[in-house]
């Protein structure tokens, strides 16, 4: 499933929107999610899961090819924690 499929399904299922409007709305939803996460704000979607930005400290790693030790710099990463509801839907539904 791609974003185009989601747009198509929103257009078909909901009605009342042109394809253009459906596309703009779906784009908007993902853009708002991205802007929020870029501000390091957590996003909690009930029945789906939580997107959380985590701070990682710098640590020593190794170039696996040359085996040279290198420092992996501190960074922020995005993690997704699926909700209990989503997990159970994938397993008994």
């Amino acid at each position: 499933m791609t974003k185009a499929d989601i747009i198509e399904a929103v257009y078909d299922k909901l009605g009342g929107f042109s394809k253009r409007e459906a596309a703009d709305l779906v784009e908007m939803v993902f853009e708002v999610l991205k802007e929020t996460l870029a501000k390091q704000e957590k996003v909690k979607i009930s029945g789906f899961g939580n997107f959380v930005v985590r701070e990682k400290k710098s640590r020593m790693g190794r170039n696996p090819q040359t085996r040279q030790p290198i420092e992996i710099s501190a960074r922020r990463v995005l993690t997704f924690k699926p909700s209990q509801v989503l997990k159970s839907q994938l397993n008994n539904g």
Binding site: M1, T2, K3, D5, I6, A9, V10, K13, L14, V26, V29, F30, L33, K34, I45, G47, F48, L86, Q89, L90, G93
Partner: peptide
Amino acid sequence: AIFELMVDAMKEGQRIEIRNF
């Protein structure tokens, strides 16, 4: 609708690709 569609796709074992997300 967007999140329901994504849940339904995952229930079917489908992969969801949202470009740039």
